[in-house]
Design a protein around this nucleic acid. Sequence first.
DNA 1: TCTGATAATGAGAAAGATTATCATTTGCAA
DNA 2: TTGCAAATGATAATCTTTCTCATTATCAGA
Lengths: 149, 149
Amino acid sequence: MKEPNSPDSPLADLCRQRGLKLTGQRRTIAFVLSDSDDHPDVEELYRRAVEVDPRISIATVYRTVRLFEENGILQRRDFGGGRARYEVADGDHGDHYHLIDADTGKVIEFENAELDALLDGIVRQMGYDLVTTRLSVVGRRKAKPRSRG
Amino acid sequence: MKEPNSPDSPLADLCRQRGLKLTGQRRTIAFVLSDSDDHPDVEELYRRAVEVDPRISIATVYRTVRLFEENGILQRRDFGGGRARYEVADGDHGDHYHLIDADTGKVIEFENAELDALLDGIVRQMGYDLVTTRLSVVGRRKAKPRSRG
DNA sequence: TCTGATAATGAGAAAGATTATCATTTGCAA
DNA sequence: TTGCAAATGATAATCTTTCTCATTATCAGA
Ligand SMILES: [Mn+2]
Ligand SMILES: [Mn+2]
Ligand SMILES: [Zn+2]
Ligand SMILES: [Zn+2]
C-alpha cells in the first residue's frame, strides 16, 4: 500500500464536484488514475488499485471507468488489441494524439494545432460539426541514416 | 442466390494471384465483398454470403476475412461498437478516411491529400516511418443556417 | 451521532465477438 | 484419378465487458 488516508487526489475532488458518491473504491481508483501518466487498461488499473486497497473488485474498476468516462473525467482510448485503455481527461494537458511504435507497442503522445484545424475544417466543409476525433498512427522507428564511407 | 457460376470476381482473381487456395466458400465471400461498397461486419458478410451459397459457415467467414486481411486484400476498420468491419483494400480507390454521423451511424468516406501529407510529416519529424493511420471522426450534421427574418 | 433510504460493491453468471479444436471434406498438383 | 495438405462446419473455448443480486456502505437528515 502507498499513500493511505492522505488528502484526496485531484480526481477524487473532481468526483465530488460532479456530485458522485465518493466511495472508498472510487477514491482508490481516482488516486491510481491521478498517479498514472500512461494509458492503462482495466486489468492494469485493477492491479494498481489492489496495491492500494486489496479488497477492491475488478467489476468495480469496470464500473468506475465507465462512470468516470460518462462524466468527462476519463477518456477511453483504443490502440487496438481489443481492450479499452484509459487516461485522465486533462483540460491543461489539452487534446492530443498517439503514435504507437509498431515494434515495441510504446505509446508516444503528440499535439498538433495544424492537425486540429485541418480536421475541423474538413468536417465542417462536409456539413458537420466535429464531435470526436479518433486518431492514432502506427510508426516504425527510422533507421539512423549512416554516415557513408 | 444471385450470379452463380459466373466468371470469378476481381477479389477471387486476387486470391488466386496470391497463391491462396480458391475454395467455393472463398469464391463466394470474395464475390460478396466485390459486390459491396459499404463497411459490413462479419455477421453482415455472413448474411450476404448465405444468399449466394447457403452451406457456408460463419466460422469460415471469420477465417476468410482474417486471411484476406493478412494478404492485403481486405482492410479492417473499427468504428466503435465492438465489431470489426471490412472493406476491400482498393488500390485505385486510394487511402481514405471515415466520418461517422453521430446520430445515424452513417459512414461517409473522404480523402484529403493535405491530411495525408501532414500526418506523414508529423510522424517523420518524430523519427518514425508511418505504417498505419487509424483515423475516424464523429460529427453531427450542422443545422441549416436559417435566413433571419 | 444515529438511522434509513438509496446507491455501490463483490462474486460470479451472462453476453457478445472472435479464435481454437477436431473430425470430415475438398482443392489441386502429380 | 489419387493422395495429401489444407479448408470447412459445428461447436467449444477464450477474452473482454456487462449484468444480476444479495450484501454493504455512503451520506443527508433527524
Ligand atoms: Mn495490460
Ligand atoms: Mn451488423
Ligand atoms: Zn494520451
Ligand atoms: Zn471506407
